[in-house]
Design a protein around this nucleic acid. Structure first.
Lengths: 260, 260
DNA sequence: CGGTTCCTTGACGCATATCAATCTGTGTGG
DNA sequence: CCACACAGATTGATATGCGTCAAGGAACCG
């Protein structure tokens, strides 16, 4: 246990209003107890933390940097399952299946992560219903994301996949903002969407024609409803436009939907 | 509540050694309480139980028949997320996200399902840790399946996808058995694997050359290691061959793997 | 600066979707 | 009991969208 290092880690991060779903709503004591049992560790870019087929010993929480989880075949091709930013966790599912990891976990930058030992987790879940609920919500979120990933790969054209991804990021980073940033490098996003970097790049060309300005990692929305092309029923429910504005939106899928 | 109808439902089904993960390890009283709050209902083939974007009111448990969950785009194309056989449940995830369903749920035959009301579920989870753990395991299983689905679609050739699917079914139905059955019609399986029925059919042609006999829904393994071509690291861990037999297996991915 | 990594753009080929015809099995009604 | 209809599966021919390969450019870092 590298207890001392935990001082480095900004306290605010773990607070109930922080970014990390795993700590949401926990008391200060609970938090303290988790941290006492955890270790903070630095990893270099590209390091493998867990390999596909391994039995993971920790839940990994990204404090600084980023990571990705992926599967690979015998030819060495890889498919990115998740891209983890600061505050994201990984390996909850495997821990609870008591089994082996279906993915490899790898840092994509020099990063710092908190490692929470799996035996402690299993125990703590039974003691703390709020913590159990947090784990449940994280898993539900992962599952939902993977369903949308399947949808993107099989049901959408490359341009639609990228547009849909952009729409999600736009909503996450505040839908009143006309500008947002890509949190990962383009080739990683492309792989996550099941397309090659080349195809991703060509899709960007299409999106530029549709009223987006793309400048490195920065995306600016020039035409107000540009991303609304890519909205689906699920996402429309979370649309923050006023009901009046929704009616004006030329693409909103709620218009055609029947009322129940 | 159609309490009387519940008498019809074979009691053995719900026992702790039954097929349904959701009821595993529950006491007779707990079981009774769940059933008292549930309804048994008949649905015709092709009926829609929940639509993508709806807020589901129940967890659905298949008692007789089968169902599938899928997403569709505006062109009317569909991608099958899950195929539900007897004993399978659906909509747990949406219930716990407190949100809307990302998929449409549809019966694929005339079927009977038990409907467990969502408010009851939410309440019961807090009272009964075993039940909470069951839900957690179900969600983890769904997530893992969806990861393998992504893997199949992006990393495998059509023949490999089908072979891998066959291997899973073979293991599920008893790996000492040289014969197993497809639990759903081929076109549904094809859609689940992200390929067309035509491509699925052509993949079957390849598999026949590799030592499989395919007769309608029945698959017979003529050459002992025929399906081992399609094994991956995850699956190898669950391989029931003895360690000696594994060494003889010409395709086992464990042979080349480095020991940790 | 010079090297590396990432992104972009263009030309080409192939694997799988699409389209179309035939075959098989199964349930239905005369 | 047979004939018919229909859904599903198979097989063949064709088309096309995306991957692959290759070259050039931009940004970043030591």
């Amino acid at each position: 246990m590298i207890k001392n290092n935990l001082q480095i880690w900004p306290r605010a991060f773990s607070s109930s209003n922080g970014k990390s779903q795993i700590f949401k709503g926990l008391s200060e004591e609970s938090l303290q107890k988790i941290l006492e049992n955890s270790t903070l560790q630095h990893f270099k870019k590209g390091q493998l933390l867990v390999q596909q087929g391994d039995t993971p010993s920790y839940i990994y929480l990204v404090i600084k940097g980023s990571a990705r989880s992926f599967r690979s075949n015998t030819d060495g091709d890889e498919t990115t399952i998740r891209m983890l930013a600061v505050g994201d966790t990984c390996m909850e599912t495997s821990i609870f299946m008591g089994g082996i990891s279906p993915v490899t976990l790898q840092t994509t930058e020099n990063s710092q992560l908190i490692l929470i030992p799996s035996p402690f987790i299993k125990n703590f879940v039974l003691q703390n219903p709020q913590f159990a609920m947090n784990i449940l919500k994280i898993m539900a979120q992962h599952y939902q994301n993977s369903i949308q990933q399947i949808d993107s790969i099989t049901l959408k054209s490359p341009t639609q996949s990228v547009g849909y991804y952009f729409l999600q990021k736009h909503l996450e980073q505040g839908s009143d903002n006309t500008e947002f940033e890509l949190p990962f490098k383009k080739s990683t996003i492309a792989n996550h969407l099941g397309i090659t970097p080349e195809t991703f790049s060509r899709a960007l060309g299409q999106l530029k024609k549709m009223g987006l300005e793309i400048e490195g990692e920065k995306i600016r929305i020039k035409e107000a409803f540009a991303l609304c092309h890519f909205c689906d029923l699920d996402t429309a429910q979370n649309c923050t436009l006023s009901d009046i504005a929704k009616l004006e939106c030329p693409h909103c899928p709620l218009h055609t939907g029947t009322h129940h």
